[in-house]
């Protein structure tokens, strides 16, 4: 049964991180990741503030590959680290102009990271 990222978050408050299976924990990390890189947006940055429909679609597709991917982490610490790195790459990607060289460079980094896990 698919558990809601939020539900996992709530459960963790009760049973603690050590009482949470790694698979559920990854679900929680995925939810936080979606929030940090997609739901949140920097209205004060000239690039991140204006995300046109085209870019949204492109980004979202990439995001879905992350959300759908099944990961196999040794432990929760490694899972957390991985997602922090992935988040960092996505955030940097958000600040590159659409379809520019920097944009594609940043995308390559993300793809590489995804290929590793």
């Amino acid at each position: 049964m698919l558990r809601d990222g939020n539900e996992v978050g709530q459960m963790m408050k009760v049973v603690g991180e050590e009482g949470t299976p790694t698979a559920d924990f990854v679900k929680y990390l995925k939810a936080e990741f979606l929030d940090s890189v997609y739901l949140q947006q920097n209205t004060f940055d000239p690039i991140d503030s204006a995300c046109g429909a085209e870019r949204q679609e492109y980004m979202f597709d990439k995001l879905l590959t992350v959300l759908d991917k099944s990961f196999d982490f040794e432990d929760k610490g490694k899972a957390r680290s991985y997602f922090q790195n992935l988040r960092q790459e996505f955030i940097d990607w958000n600040y590159t102009p659409w379809d520019s060289i920097d944009f594609h460079e940043a995308e390559k980094k993300i793809d590489a990271l995804l290929a590793q896990a």
Partner: peptide, 10 residues
């Protein structure tokens, strides 16, 4: 909060 509930700290 977590700590006050007695959970182990990661």
């Amino acid at each position: 909060e977590k700590q006050s509930m007695g959970f182990r700290m990661s």
